[in-house]
Amino acid sequence: MIPAAFEYYRPKDMAGVIALLQEHGDDARVVAGGHSLIPMMKLRMAEVPHLIDLQGIDGLGGITIKDGAVRIGAMTTQHEIITSQALADAAPIMKEAALQIADPQVRYMGTVGGNVANGDPGNDMPGLMQCLDAQFHLTGPDGDRAVAARDFYEAAYMTERADDEVLTAVTFATPVGGHAYEKQKRKIGDYATAAAAVQISKAGGKVATASIAMTNLSDTPIWSQAAGAALLGTDCGEAANKAAVAAMLDDIDPTEDNRGPVAFKRHAAGIVLGRAIARAWSRA
């Protein structure tokens, strides 16, 4: 639990961050809350000779809700997600999910940006962002660009972000209808055995829109288009629910670990999704 030596930087502006990233390439990493990266460094599983702290940069935090859109700065903590009444009104699934991440001490430090940018398949926010069809905003030497959350994740810890880019914010349209974030975990602070993010809207008693994403059941979050499609136009009853679960099961690819064998994880995935759909529908 003793990290190797590293240089620590605390630049005052994004230009300074980018310059450092360009100078040191993949020998440099930015750190936000540090609750994923620092433990990896202590275990010497991540060697980071140049650590760039983003705490000194203005404008990376804050939650803005305007014109039907939500913008969450990368340095916004999970705690701020939980305590923002405006966000709870606009996108209640954010609070429901954030309350299931880690524990209060971690949530005071852990950030949305770090959670989505790290590419850890165990993190909850990536799947949630895919469910909400969020855009990730990246700043690099060539300026700004946006990448859809659904296109961002390539494999475990591998993302669309280039080494010299920084994720600065996530944005998404204010979701409509009912929501649910259902997570099974072994204990407080654990990653999901299986988790489902569901957002459903209703029109004329039928499902108008449905978006479903699963967490920690593949090496990336899984947005299951087919599972959402299975609900469209239905009364979201038992048959539709089962069809959505079946479709989702075709998209996930869990591996065995201490949380259990594949058969159990697939079963648990089906259960948490079934429950999430029912709860989201009841709120739609």
Partner: peptide, 11 residues
């Protein structure tokens, strides 16, 4: 008796 072992018993 963790989750998966209980599940396995039920299964």
């Amino acid at each position: 008796h963790d989750h998966w072992r209980i599940w396995q018993t039920a299964n």
